[in-house]
Amino acid sequence: MTSTLIAPSMLACDFSRLRDEIKAVEGAGADWIHLDVMDGHFVPNITFGPNVIAAMRPHTDKVFDTHLMIAPCDPYLEAFAKAGSDVITVHAEAGPHLDRSLQAIRALGKKAAVSLNPGTPESVLEYVLDRLDLILVMSVNPGFGGQKFIPAVIDKVARIRDMIGDRPIDIEVDGGVTAETAPLVTAAGANVLVVGSAVFKGGSPENAQVYERHIKTIRATADAAHV
C-alpha cells in the first residue's frame, strides 16, 4: 500500500501564528507544507510573497510546496527559490511560455510543477511532461479556501495518470479535499493531497491533536483507495 502524502495548506491556518501553526502541523504528521501565493490579479485574493516564506523556512525542514497563483510568474521564480521553496508550481494559464517557466525552475535547482484550473484540459501538458516533477490538479477554482470539491476532476486525474505513463511525476490534488473526497482522487491516481480546512478546522497549535486526527483520517481513507 502506498502512503499518500498530505500537504496542509497554510492558507487555512491562523496567519498571526504562522510559526506555531507550522510546528503544530509538522508534529501532527504533515508530509509537506503547502504555500498558496495569490496576487489579486490571476486570482481574486492576495496572500503572501517570498519574504513571508523566507520567514517560515527556519521553522521546519519539511518540503515547501509553493503554489504560485500569480501572473506573470517568471520574474518572481528566483525570489521564491531563494526564499526556500522546494517545489515551485506555476499555472499553465498564467503565461504564454510554460516550457520556459519550467526550465527556469529546474535551473534554480527546484522541482518544477504545473497546475491546471478545473476548466483547463490536461492536453496542455502533452509537450512539457519531460520538464515536470509534479502536476497539481485544481479541484476547485483557485483563489479562496473552503470551496466544494468539483467531481469532474476525478476523471481528469485518471487521464493524467495514463498520460504520465512510467515517468516519475507526482499527481497532487488541491481543493475541497476531505476524508470523503480523498479516496476518490487517490483511486484515480493522485498521491499528494493538499488539505486546508479539513486539517485546521476545530484545532489550534495548543490543540494540535485535532490536526493529527484529521491528517490520520484523511491519509487512511486515501491509502485504502490508492491505485
Rank of each mutant, 00 (worst) to 15 (best):
A198V: 11
N191Q: 05
V153N: 05
C73N: 05
L134M: 15
S197W: 01
D20I: 00
L11R: 08
N207H: 15
A225P: 10
C13S: 15
G84D: 03
R167Q: 06
L11E: 07
A222L: 12
A190M: 10
K110M: 07
V87N: 04
Y76A: 09
L77S: 10
A30M: 14
P168Q: 08
G203V: 07
E122R: 01
L129Y: 07
R167M: 03
V185H: 07
K111P: 00
D20V: 01
L136I: 12
V128D: 12
L132F: 12
G40Y: 05
Q147C: 07
D39G: 07
T47Y: 04
S3K: 07
R161G: 05
G196F: 09
S204D: 03
M69T: 03
L68N: 08
P75A: 09
A182N: 08
D166P: 07
E26W: 02
Q147F: 09
E21P: 02
W32L: 06
D65R: 05
H41R: 13
S139W: 14
I135R: 04
V185M: 08
A208M: 10
K216V: 08
P118Q: 09
D130M: 12
P151G: 10
V37S: 02
I135V: 15
I154P: 13
N51T: 06
K148E: 04
E122V: 01
I160P: 05
Q147P: 07
G176A: 10
A188R: 00
E172H: 06
A71H: 11
P118S: 11
D74E: 13
I171G: 01
N141M: 06
R17Q: 14
V173Y: 07
G165V: 08
L116A: 14
